[in-house]
Write a protein that binds this DNA or RNA. Structure first.
Lengths: 223, 223
DNA sequence: ATGTTGTATATTGGATACAATCGTGCAAGC
DNA sequence: GCTTGCACGATTGTATCCAATATACAACAT
């Protein structure tokens, strides 16, 4: 019996079709696999997942609520366009929210979390596949915020990152973005390990501001 | 031609059923007309609006994405419960975000916006109907943030307010909540009119913190 | 009495079918 | 040539129907 219950994984709690589709679309959008302005046809998506349009529409409604797509009645939904000003605003928002998270997390951070963050940092430094950089970078930052025990702040930060992740990925891939990030990540971990909450917060804020400036430079140069 | 285009308001962009339902449910939830934990039956809502369950489900998915309801597969959706700790966290979040908004808005604030805010402040002071207090209070604060031109911050603040508006309403109705709010609102307007962005921001932050403390006191006293 | 099992009902998730609307191309008229 | 009107296909919005699941309760065994 014990063996069974250990393996008994709540079959009913499995994800619904619309949950699966939501996750797939969300991932594709934030990775930039779906370009800005691209229209998403309900029928095409439904066929990809072998479902009817109903769960597709429900997933799209959720994406709309989180701002990743924009919907126009009888015309369709498109991947949301975002202006340079908005990108900068969202980076600024992150620079406001994320230092609060890490400052609150530091005195509560477990050894396990610190080790995990260190692992992610090293994996990020060693990774050669460019598309995985974004994943690891994102996981690294999230891992430092979880112990804060501030679910609303955390969700707000995650939502903000969703909106600009494609640009963060570009910034990591171009110029010295990644090399700088690695060094700064290590500094942040060190501050956390030393229990210096304010320093960790300040480093986090500077890290975000630098990424924003670097990205702005890239955009203005390349058009 | 100018007159026409000024009045030409997008007749095709009329709200869909699910938009109407979304708005009605959202309003009912944030006003507290639907209690926490109350389950929302698709069929019942569909009958209220004389539609099928499809647009109802789409509205519920959007509410779920914004956190106002919680959905469990095959069981239904319930109005999200929120703990005291979460309420305090969201007030803290507001105290972080809204000062930024008003500080950015002050140097950009039009005379019209100032006048409008003053009107709302006075209407709030004179209103006798308790349920309208919440509306006017909310409108007052929003009116001070619009000129900031920070749509992401603004949306984040609105979303945070949605989650705790029912408690703000309680806080306004009980004790000296409303009387204090009126005085503090006027101080904020005065700072805005004087162009003192930092003072307006600080008053806003204190206003939010005081409301949070007042509410916490009410909750702990009354259970 | 208590606990278990079968069954009926209520409710949600999803598929199919239909209605409403948009965009486009094309022909007619000026 | 340029505009106007219209027909048609493509696409979205919604209703209706069926399947999957949960919940409540009755029948039954111990």
């Amino acid at each position: 019996m014990e063996g069974l219950s250990a393996r008994a994984s709540n079959i009913g709690a499995g994800a619904s079709s619309s949950d699966v589709i939501l996750d797939a679309l969300r991932t594709a959008i934030i990775r930039g696999e779906l370009a800005e302005g691209q229209t998403l046809r309900q029928d095409a998506i439904a066929k990809m997942f072998n479902v009817s349009r109903i769960p597709v529409r429900e997933a799209l409604k959720q994406l709309e609520a989180s701002g990743l797509v924009t919907s126009v009645r009888y015309k369709g939904v498109v991947v949301s366009r975002i202006s340079v000003a908005e990108i900068q605003e969202i980076f600024d928002f992150r620079a406001t929210v994320e230092p609060k998270l890490i400052a609150h997390a530091v005195p509560r951070m477990s050894q396990h979390s610190l080790d995990h963050a260190q692992q992610l940092c090293e994996a990020f430094a060693e990774e050669t596949d460019g598309v995985r950089w974004g994943d690891l970078n994102r996981q690294f930052h999230s891992s430092l915020y979880l112990d804060a025990g501030l679910p609303y702040y955390f969700a707000a930060a995650e939502a903000a990152n969703d909106r600009i992740e494609r640009y963060i990925r570009a910034q990591l891939s171009l110029g010295h973005g990644r090399a700088l990030a690695i060094a700064e990540h290590q500094q942040i971990i060190d501050a956390c390990r030393a229990g210096e909450a304010e320093r960790a917060a300040d480093l986090t804020r500077k890290h975000i501001v630098k990424a924003s400036e670097s990205l702005t430079r890239i955009i203005t140069e390349r058009g």
